[in-house]
């Protein structure tokens, strides 16, 4: 039954513009990162670029493969997390915005399958976006001739990216719940933006490692010095948040009155 539900959830994305827009958004990260790398590689030309050159210099970028991967991990930690929230709000919130929730919820299918299938769709979507990002980054890095590529650096760089993307995905389930609770897009997107801001602020404090939305920025080095490894406690906080968000979404679809 689950494969049937999953198939229909994928089917719902046909001709959906946001699929392509989001993939385009994923491809912006490596391109922008590549531009910064190029500026760092070519400081004379960077000087001609004025402000952009100054910013790239202030960020303390080094034009190497580890530097490029670090930049991409930061992008995934901030923009990627917001993008996953947008995708999740779309996948769940559209059922309310399009008034199709009342069609979906009278199917001979346990309602939790819809929640799980939608989260799998978000995961697949995010994996495709991250895959695209990695492939594009490889091309850009090679084209720029960035130094310092070894198999272990490549493996560590990709692993960091995947971990940041994975945490961003785990934090999508509260967004899913708020889409069902708010019956649309506004509440989940507002929540995602507020959490991103709070997460970056708290990341600079000692509490950051216990606040789910600070953990990716901390790990990516956006909110202060980069944490090389994630504490088990931090991962537990993320996993618990994911589980609570998923349980709340299932409860919302199962027990709340669907008056839309």
């Amino acid at each position: 039954m689950f494969t049937r539900v999953l198939f229909t959830e994928v089917m719902k994305l046909r001709r959906s513009r946001i699929t392509w827009i989001s993939l385009l958004a994923y491809s912006v990260g490596p391109a922008a990162g590549g531009l910064f790398m190029w500026i760092a590689l070519e400081p004379r030309r960077a000087a001609d670029l004025g402000l952009l050159g100054t910013k790239a210099d202030l960020a303390g970028l080094t034009a190497t493969w580890p530097g490029y991967f670090g930049l991409l991990t930061q992008t995934t930690g901030i923009a990627g997390m917001l993008l996953v929230s947008v995708i999740t709000a779309y996948v769940f919130g559209r059922e309310y915005a399009d008034k199709t929730a009342r069609v979906m919820l009278v199917q001979p299918v346990p309602r939790y399958w819809f929640v799980i299938a939608k989260l799998v769709v978000v995961l697949g979507w995010m994996a495709a976006g991250t895959g695209l990002m990695i492939a594009e980054a490889a091309l850009v890095g090679v084209a720029l001739g960035l130094p310092g590529l070894t198999p272990s650096i490549a493996a560590n760089g990709v692993a960091d990216l995947l971990l940041a993307a994975g945490i961003a995905f785990l934090l999508a389930s509260p967004v899913a719940w708020l889409s069902a609770l708010g019956r649309g897009y506004l509440l989940p997107l507002g929540f995602a933006i507020v959490m991103l801001v709070i997460g970056n602020i708290l990341g600079a404090t000692a509490w950051g490692r216990w606040f789910p939305w600070s953990i990716v920025p901390l790990f990516a080095g956006v909110a202060g010095p980069r944490a090389e490894t994630l504490a088990a406690g931090s991962m537990a906080v993320v996993v618990c948040t994911a589980a609570a968000g998923m349980a709340a979404t299932i409860a919302q679809l199962t027990w709340a009155d669907q008056r839309q």
Partner: peptide, 12 residues
């Protein structure tokens, strides 16, 4: 069933 106004997935 058909509840209130007719709806469908608009992009399909």
């Amino acid at each position: 069933s058909l509840v209130e106004t007719a709806t469908a997935y608009p992009n399909l």
